[in-house]
Design a protein around this nucleic acid. Sequence first.
DNA 1: CAATTCATGTAATAACATTACGTGATGTAT
DNA 2: ATACATCACGTAATGTTATTACATGAATTG
Lengths: 132, 132
Amino acid sequence: MSAVNLTKNQTLVLDVLTKSEAPLSAYTILDKLRDHGFRAPLQVYRALEKLLEFGLVHRLESLNSFVACAHREHSCCSHGTVAFAICESCGQVSEFHDHVVDDQLNAWTRGKGFKPSKTTIEIRGLCAACNS
Amino acid sequence: MSAVNLTKNQTLVLDVLTKSEAPLSAYTILDKLRDHGFRAPLQVYRALEKLLEFGLVHRLESLNSFVACAHREHSCCSHGTVAFAICESCGQVSEFHDHVVDDQLNAWTRGKGFKPSKTTIEIRGLCAACNS
DNA sequence: CAATTCATGTAATAACATTACGTGATGTAT
DNA sequence: ATACATCACGTAATGTTATTACATGAATTG
Ligand SMILES: [Zn+2]
Ligand SMILES: [Zn+2]
Ligand SMILES: [Zn+2]
Ligand SMILES: [Zn+2]
């Protein structure tokens, strides 16, 4: 199991992200936590840094935003690369793993002698609901 | 052939990107073009916007930077999603297409009723040269 | 010749992220 | 127990990336 011991700030940030329907920017998180004593961006960025490290949160590069991991039970980051489908209308994000994609990208990097450290896959578009 | 008629500013920006070994941020481009009369970020962002539209340039989301398209002959964007392998040591970027990845992601989105508009695939790591 | 469109220029501001410095709590080795 | 290292935290300042608002001149079109 994961069961990392989170600090107060980390817990607050993770809670805000977990409760949110859509990804949040660091500054939005900051605003949501002003009542809990947050005053400066760094408080958020420091918590996010750890949460990313623990695999409890993902960063969406194409949005400069953050989401709680949707697969916490499985220790998400262990089963390879994660992909995100991001609805540009309602903001909803679906997180998924795909082994074929994963294997194929790994094959490419092996072939080139490229040593991957982190892979970003983000699909922007319209979700089924917004796309009727 | 593509042969879009570029404006002066678009040509300048594309030239800078084409000559560069590594991706450049908008502000770096701005600095490189001061001698050619560029004074403000917007001059760069406006040119980039068009160049992205024409498929002559790509944006690297994980770097907030831009690269000239490596496949200009083939009208790059026509053959599906592009992926990038980005060396975190030397900055070199390899652009490639992979139909299996492409098809697999399309299968996922079709299955979910998600209508994709733009897909980002970026692999950060170390290139063969930096990874000896 | 209007009227519209489009590339451009400039200034100001907004949004995102990091550096630098300092404090108190905790843990560990002598 | 004292010295030392580590870590979470707080605050201020600054750096980096991107957009909004407003104005001008050139090209296009009816
Ligand atoms: Zn996850
Ligand atoms: Zn939606
Ligand atoms: Zn390309
Ligand atoms: Zn390299």
